[in-house]
Computed example of a mutant assay.
Amino acid sequence: MSESSSGVNTSSDSLPKSHTSQGSELRDTHTPLSVEQSPDSGFVTTPLPSNRFRFISWHRLEESDVRGDQLSCPRVREAGPSEEELYLRGEQYALYASGSRRGRRRRGEEDQVQKWEERLQENWENCVELNLSYQDLGDPYQLENFIRILRRLIRVERLQLVDNALKDLSSVRLPRCKYLNLHRNHLTSIRQLPKMPQIQHLCLSENGIGALGELSLLGATPLQSLTLRRNPCEFLEDYRPRVFSCLPKLCVLDGIPKLPEDSVPSPMSAASRLCTIL
């Protein structure tokens, strides 16, 4: 089995059985693949059969019946805004000025039909486990499409969103999510997290969270383990006791189980650490 950059599993059981032009090339081609020399290892490498599809999303393969919930690591970042979006931005006026109004309308209707069919094929509503990490969301259009997909994950239980430069997911609700990995993003507040009433394991390492008081917003969830490593809040005084004070049901913090010294410090012990100058 091989996987293209768009997340397509190109094994014989994941592609449609119909003899499409793309499918027949994968299964029936007898043309030897090009041979390349690896400069590092010196070994001769042969490109995988999926190499020819590395710039194509799975739902753009003709007659492909692969759906989004059948992929483990799909690439959902769009290549760029549609021509209509560019036209509204004023970045592609020359392209539209050269075509007729009737042709643009017909093309727009066809694009809407194709987009609707692709969204049905995505089938995000039935995803249970999904990895959408490293999407490289460089354009606001791509981020908007990414948030659109997250809002459709009504059944996902395990979700990986590593290194996506995400700043605010408060508009997203993940009603069944139990495991969420938001390692290495740009979150600065617990209020920017999605709604996760069933969350049990949450990773927020390498973000910009500085306040601990907002952790109480997660108090109503069945959260068992939390990772806040490499956030500014990690350097606050009494960091671990304060976290467990906000989340009494928490069992593991930063990979370390709750220890006796992680209990809330008493006022007497806090006063004993003060230095008295006579």
Score class of each variant (00 low, 15 high):
residue 164 N to H: 10
residue 159 L to A: 04
residue 137 L to R: 05
residue 170 S to M: 04
residue 150 L to E: 06
residue 130 L to P: 08
residue 158 R to N: 12
residue 158 R to K: 13
residue 127 C to K: 12
residue 142 Q to Y: 00
residue 130 L to A: 10
residue 122 E to F: 14
residue 160 Q to F: 07
residue 153 L to R: 15
residue 137 L to C: 01
residue 123 N to I: 10
residue 164 N to S: 08
residue 165 A to E: 09
residue 127 C to S: 15
residue 142 Q to H: 01
residue 146 F to I: 07
residue 135 Q to N: 05
residue 140 P to G: 01
residue 122 E to A: 13
residue 171 S to G: 02
residue 167 K to V: 09
residue 123 N to W: 07
residue 144 E to M: 02
residue 160 Q to W: 13
residue 122 E to R: 15
residue 139 D to A: 02
residue 158 R to V: 14
residue 172 V to P: 01
residue 138 G to N: 04
residue 126 N to D: 14
residue 129 E to C: 13
residue 166 L to S: 09
residue 171 S to P: 00
residue 166 L to H: 10
residue 136 D to I: 00
residue 134 Y to W: 12
residue 128 V to A: 14
residue 167 K to L: 10
residue 165 A to S: 07
residue 146 F to S: 04
residue 135 Q to L: 04
residue 148 R to P: 01
residue 170 S to K: 00
residue 172 V to A: 02
residue 155 R to M: 11
residue 153 L to K: 13
residue 125 E to D: 10
residue 170 S to W: 03
residue 127 C to T: 13
residue 140 P to Y: 01
residue 141 Y to F: 12
residue 164 N to T: 04
residue 151 R to E: 10
residue 163 D to H: 06
residue 147 I to D: 04
residue 153 L to E: 12
residue 160 Q to T: 09
residue 132 L to A: 04
residue 131 N to D: 15
residue 154 I to G: 03
residue 171 S to Q: 10
residue 149 I to G: 05
residue 134 Y to V: 01
residue 125 E to Q: 10
residue 149 I to E: 05
residue 138 G to Y: 02
residue 123 N to V: 06
residue 134 Y to H: 08
residue 161 L to I: 06
residue 165 A to T: 07
residue 125 E to K: 10
residue 142 Q to T: 02
residue 162 V to N: 08
residue 159 L to W: 07
residue 166 L to I: 11
residue 125 E to T: 11
residue 130 L to H: 06
residue 149 I to R: 15
residue 145 N to M: 14
residue 149 I to K: 11
residue 134 Y to L: 11
residue 170 S to E: 03
residue 140 P to K: 03
residue 169 L to R: 06
residue 125 E to C: 08
residue 143 L to D: 00
residue 124 W to E: 04
residue 168 D to R: 08
residue 163 D to N: 12
residue 157 E to A: 11
residue 145 N to K: 13
residue 171 S to R: 05
residue 128 V to Y: 12
residue 136 D to F: 07
residue 151 R to N: 12
residue 127 C to G: 12
residue 144 E to Q: 10
residue 139 D to M: 04
residue 133 S to E: 00
residue 144 E to Y: 03
residue 126 N to M: 14
residue 147 I to E: 07
residue 159 L to Y: 08
residue 154 I to P: 02
residue 160 Q to Y: 13
